[in-house]
Design a protein around this nucleic acid. Sequence first.
DNA 1: CAAGCGAGTCGAACCGGTTCGACTCACGAG
DNA 2: CTCGTGAGTCGAACCGGTTCGACTCGCTTG
Lengths: 349, 349
Amino acid sequence: MIDGQSNRLDGERVNIGEIAKRAGVSRSTVSYALSGKRPVAAATARRINEVIAELGYRPNASARALAEGRTRTLGLVIPPASRRLTDVQLGFVATVVEEAAANDLDVLLSPSGADHDRSFERIVTGRRVDGVILMEILLDDPRVARLERGALPFVSIGHVEHPGRSWWVDVDYAGLVRRCVHHLADLGHRQVVLINRSTELVAAGYGPALRATAGFQEAAAQRGMTARTVCCADEPAAGLSCFEEIRTRWPGVTAAVTINEAALPGLQRALHNAGLVVPRDFSITGVIADRLAEEFHPPLTAADVPAAQMARIAVELLIERITDPSATPRHALLQPVISLRSSTGANLS
Amino acid sequence: MIDGQSNRLDGERVNIGEIAKRAGVSRSTVSYALSGKRPVAAATARRINEVIAELGYRPNASARALAEGRTRTLGLVIPPASRRLTDVQLGFVATVVEEAAANDLDVLLSPSGADHDRSFERIVTGRRVDGVILMEILLDDPRVARLERGALPFVSIGHVEHPGRSWWVDVDYAGLVRRCVHHLADLGHRQVVLINRSTELVAAGYGPALRATAGFQEAAAQRGMTARTVCCADEPAAGLSCFEEIRTRWPGVTAAVTINEAALPGLQRALHNAGLVVPRDFSITGVIADRLAEEFHPPLTAADVPAAQMARIAVELLIERITDPSATPRHALLQPVISLRSSTGANLS
DNA sequence: CAAGCGAGTCGAACCGGTTCGACTCACGAG
DNA sequence: CTCGTGAGTCGAACCGGTTCGACTCGCTTG
């Protein structure tokens, strides 16, 4: 309906003044007709809308942002591309964008880490966004401090050690891993291993990795099990060598809990090479995106990471915090169900 | 609606006027000291920089965009989240963001399709970005027309049928698939099948899917082979049923070429279920992201889709087009090498 | 009938930068 | 000695919106 027509200006120089002139009113009247913040006579409004439709006018976003003091844009800080995004993170990004769009907000992406601090800094201090969603934060994250100092509303995925007045959404890794361990204990397993994320992430204080370890050891101790833990780089090759190492060092281990999605293909191949049949010879469970759990062979019994749900909640919380900067902090700790598929079985050894 | 007078952190309401006042100069002098567009005395520049550092001042991005007439932001139109992003697309997005950051540009994301036209429209007409990268375009894409009418520089990933004056980056699907077919012919295969993307995409006129088909049939005809083609939804389950159908309908087929990455896990399982050993009983090749090709068991001989390279080139071209709007259109048709791994072998039947 | 009120409109003052023209001053060339 | 020149600076005019105060009506209301 905006097609072709007689907009010879081709959307180039049309601003609110041009609309006002052609409609025979002042610029402020056009603005009020658009925002509805003051009454405008029906006849005037109709004239204005006709001119707007004819010229295909849209308010300039920068001018509006400058005048209003808000940009109608959210910032999303993603992990650097070098550390490949996992499937879960990917779904998360996509859902954030959709959810923001549903609220007429745009999303500005910023890579973090490495030498991308310029980008992060530009977004934070340049008033380019009204608020920020921070992915994959560390237990003691400098960016959190930076955002707090900048007085910019933000919601983090994952929480810092002592979340004082902060807003966040997280998955209860400790609780989920604990339940996985109990599940294995119920099936008669006595020696289990946790296949964690990479050594670097653990060293950097990545929350989920640390909390998974804690939950793992707590539950194993409670059930009197022998608990081993290994770190594994986030890539298939590492999954393979990691599993071979496990078999060599601890041949008595009969089950694994993992939160490392990227290593799964390698794990799969290692099991195949060792001639092990899942779950007859070895059980596997953990916290894994449902899609990946179903791609495994056999499908993995696992806690599904609810990335889309987290994204929706994060956007919702952020909008709330932006709208009311003095609101009391809110957060959500999600504990998704464990989907029973086919990768765990009784310990027969 | 922040009461400007009240309080807020001292460092937060700083603008160029405040810097000018404290440094004892005019606003324009501060601006010139920052941009270097006119000479400023060394002593003055030092005073200004001291004040800026002391107050932690950063220019307001909206104000600058309004005055300069450019936003220092690129738009990236991604496929809707509903149609899950593939691994390749994900790598592409991440690399675009990094490459843009390297050029001090930010990236605004816009989902397309479905009911997200508002978002697309907002970005195009609101002058929110200086240029746009369009992912996964169709052979006859309405968004291309929209961007051309809006006089907004853009680069597309994939090209329309008759790329007149447009800028684009693409992978030579036809050529790659052709080479895959020749490779299989050289190994003695006589009956081959193309496992394409989904029926919907093909019907919608998705370029790579159509060009892959064309290249496939051309090469097969040239080598006197029997060529079958099937469409397969972009998901593991479809890969499984799709392969079973192939075995039933055309039992003589001994090799497959695929450009459908998402279906690979299902394909893997179908092969396993059928008791087929790759490449002894069946050969597989195609156009696949290197990471996925290596996760397959055995690793796939395939043309690696160079997502990162495409992203870098796309950003580069877009910047060039923005800088010089009258430049003659440029494009890049990439023909990556085919990595010989272990999934193709001689036809023994 | 004066006063009060709310709908409808306008002009002007912002928001925070960039940029252009003009002015001053010191210095070297004619 | 005068003139031209360029470094260095300032003030003012933008960019394109939003918003506030004030003004004009026509209509109650006391």
